[in-house]
């Protein structure tokens, strides 16, 4: 562990490689987190099934790619399919928990996550999947830093997908309805906005974001049926650190988490990377709580 850390310190080029690859992965975390903050902000639901939607999106892209769909079409195909799935999930389960106690929505989405996790496991098998786009890699600093082209492309596409949705929410009519509903659902309802449809659209759009994130994950990285919960926890952590409705913060927190996780995975060993993610989340919550408690203590 210490050796690995020294290795990073003594070889800045190598450290750069680890950090850079982590940052590129972080873009996908940020994309999933953006979706989670959208659902959280508009429906007031902490969507525990978020990570499973990413994984499911990845499998849909993988299935499409294996059936001859060209790589550039994988993202739109997966995003569209996941939009439909998100929409469907809203009208079967989510609409029933919108106004309920937060624990109800957490438990219901947790139940959904188990269903989707087990379905993907049954349908696609438990093997680790990755689709090779054959784009190759490029090298920097005399080969000390290796970066796969697909990771760079995934990074760019993740940013573009998030950006498109952001513009949509700013300027499109439906986007404005979504933002209005997030601020005050009752007022929005009185003003003639069909809040139920807005919720369905929001959940669908979140599905599309997860589809995009999943398709990029399966091409640039790997997926398997049990990787969903870590994605959920990453998204949650990013939203908690960035704050609801802070898109810039989500990007920064997402990229930082990617880099941090990759460094931790290298220093502690890859088998501890997931443990690191979950421990970090607990520590962030404890730290935030401790800070909030300090604000109530005074003077002394």
């Amino acid at each position: 562990m210490v050796d690995n850390f020294l290795l990073l310190v003594q070889n800045p080029n190598f450290a750069l490689d680890v950090v850079l690859n982590g940052l590129l992965a972080g873009a996908i975390f940020a994309l999933a987190a953006y979706g989670m903050s959208l659902v959280w902000g508009v429906l007031n639901i902490v969507n525990i099934v978020q990570g499973e939607l990413v994984v499911l999106g990845g499998y849909i892209a993988y299935a499409a790619l294996s059936h001859g769909v060209p790589a550039y079409a994988a993202l739109p195909v997966s995003a569209l399919a996941m939009f439909a799935i998100g929409w469907g999930l809203y009208y079967t389960v989510i609409f029933r928990v919108v106004d309920k106690d937060l624990f109800i929505s957490i438990l219901a989405t947790f139940g959904l996550s188990i269903v989707i996790q087990q379905l993907t496991n049954t349908i696609f098998g438990s093997d680790v999947r990755s689709f090779d786009t054959g784009l190759g890699s490029f090298y920097m600093l005399d080969g000390a830093v290796t970066v796969a082209w697909i990771k760079v492309i995934a990074f760019v596409l993740a940013m573009v997908s998030g950006g498109v949705l952001w513009l949509f929410l700013r300027h499109a009519r439906l986007g404005q309805a979504i933002r209005a509903t997030a601020q005050n659902p009752r007022a929005a309802h009185i003003l003639g906005i069909n809040t139920d449809r807005v919720y369905a659209m929001t959940y669908g759009l979140n599905g599309a974001l997860c589809g995009a994130a999943g398709s990029l994950a399966v091409m640039a990285w790997t997926i398997h049926p049990y990787i969903g919960l870590p994605y959920t926890v990453r998204s949650f952590m990013i939203v908690v650190v960035a704050g609801l409705g802070n898109v810039g913060g989500v990007v920064v927190a997402g990229l930082s988490l990617g880099a941090l996780e990759n460094v931790a995975g290298f220093v502690l060993g890859a088998e501890y990377q997931i443990a690191f993610v979950f421990t970090l989340m607990v520590l962030i919550l404890v730290w935030r709580n401790w800070r909030a408690a300090r604000r109530r203590t005074y003077l002394s």
């Binding site: 937060l102 926890v233 949650f236 443990a275 979950f278 607990v282 919550l285 709580n289 401790w290």
Partner: peptide
Amino acid sequence: GIRGHYFAIATLGLGIAAGEL
């Protein structure tokens, strides 16, 4: 000291982290 859904998710993380460790 953590309340509501934050507590629920913090404990979820705690359980899984323990298993991984």
